[in-house]
Design a protein around this nucleic acid. Structure first.
Ligand code: FES
Ligand code: FES
Lengths: 149, 149
DNA sequence: AACTAATCCTACTAATTCAATAGAATAAAT
DNA sequence: ATTTATTCTATTGAATTAGTAGGATTAGTT
C-alpha cells in the first residue's frame, strides 16, 4: 500500500501540473484545500519534494510552489521514492531500500524473491513511464468517456 | 511492502510443499526452526491458513500440519490475501480491501487511480499464476544456475 | 489411567511506523 | 512596519504490526 504521504505528494504535484503554464507560485493552503490534504502535513511533504528537486519554492508574500520540471519529466516512481515509499514488495528486491532477508539463507536461490523480483519489474515499468502529464491526459480521457456515454 | 506475516506464511507453505509427498504431519517447531520464524507467531499464522482451507492440522502427539491442496493449486495471491495483506497500492483499486479515497471527488475520473489499476493488474497477473510448485521449480532452476557457473 | 507431545484459543504487550500538529524563525512584498 | 508566506524543529497521537504468555484441548504411548 502506498502511504498517505506518497498519495498526497502525487496529488499535490498533479494539482501543480495543472497550472504549470501559469508560472505563478501556488500557495500551500490553496493546494491543501483543493486536494483536501491536511495543511501542516502537506507543508512537510512539499518541503521534501523541493529538497529533492521536484519543486521550486518562493518565500514571503505571494510566495508558494512551482514545479521545477516540465510535467512530462516528473514520473510516479520518482515521487514515490522521494516520499519514502518502497515500491518493492520485499526489502530484498528493493533498489532504493534494500535490506537482506534475515530468514533466507541464500538470496540468490530464493524462489520467492525471484517471483517478487518479477512483480517489481512489472510495477516499475508502469510507474517509471507514467508522468504527471500522462495522468492529466488520462483524466481528460476518463472525463470524456463518462460524459459522452 | 508485504508484511512479515505474509512472508512467513508463504515461507511456511513452501516448506510444507517440499514435503508434500510424505503425507506426514509437520510440527510447528520444525517449520519454525527451519525457516527461522518465531514459534508463537508462526502458530497464529498457521491456524489462520488452516481456517482458510490451505492447511489441514492434526492435534496431539505426532500432530502437525499438512497442505490441504496440491502445491500447484496454492497461489501467492491467495496466501497474501489470507494473511491480511492488500495487494493493491491504493484502497480504491483493491478488490478485497476496497475503500473509497476520501480526497478524490470522482473515483471514475481519477487519473492516479487509473494508473494504479494497471499496476494492480500487472501484479495480480503474476501473483495469481505463481503456485508453490512454481516457486520450488524456480529454486531448482536458480540452484542449477549458480552451481554450474 | 497416567503421561507426554502436540495443536488450539484467548488475551495481552511491545515496538514501530504513520499521520498529523504546534509554534516560533525567516523571507519577501507593499 | 505590517502582512503573508514558507521554513525549521520538535512533539504528539493513532494505528498497525510483530511478537508473547499461558492454559485448554486432543491424541498417541506406556
Ligand atoms: S531473500 Fe528475500 S524472500 Fe528470500
Ligand atoms: S480515487 Fe483513489 S486515488 Fe483517486
Amino acid at each position: 500500500m502506498l502511504s498517505k504521504k506518497s498519495k498526497y505528494a502525487i496529488k499535490a504535484l498533479i494539482s501543480l501540473a495543472k497550472r504549470y503554464e501559469n508560472k505563478v507560485p501556488v500557495k500551500i493552503s490553496e493546494i491543501s484545500e483543493e486536494e483536501k490534504i491536511p495543511r501542516k502535513f502537506l507543508e512537510a511533504i512539499l518541503v521534501e519534494l523541493r529538497n529533492n528537486g521536484l519543486l521550486h519554492s518562493k518565500m514571503g508574500a505571494n510566495g508558494g510552489y512551482l514545479l521545477a520540471k516540465h510535467p512530462e519529466e516528473i514520473v510516479l516512481s520518482h515521487i514515490i521514492r522521494i516520499s519514502g515509499g518502497p515500491i518493492a514488495m520485499l526489502p530484498c528486491v528493493s533498489l532504493n531500500f534494500y535490506e537482506p532477508c534475515e530468514e533466507c539463507v541464500n538470496e540468490s536461490t530464493c524462489g520467492l524473491r525471484d517471483v517478487i523480483l518479477e512483480v517489481r519489474e512489472a510495477t516499475i515499468r508502469i510507474l517509471s513511464k507514467t508522468s504527471l502529464s500522462d495522468i492529466l491526459q488520462r483524466e481528460e480521457g476518463l472525463k470524456k468517456k463518462f460524459n459522452l456515454i
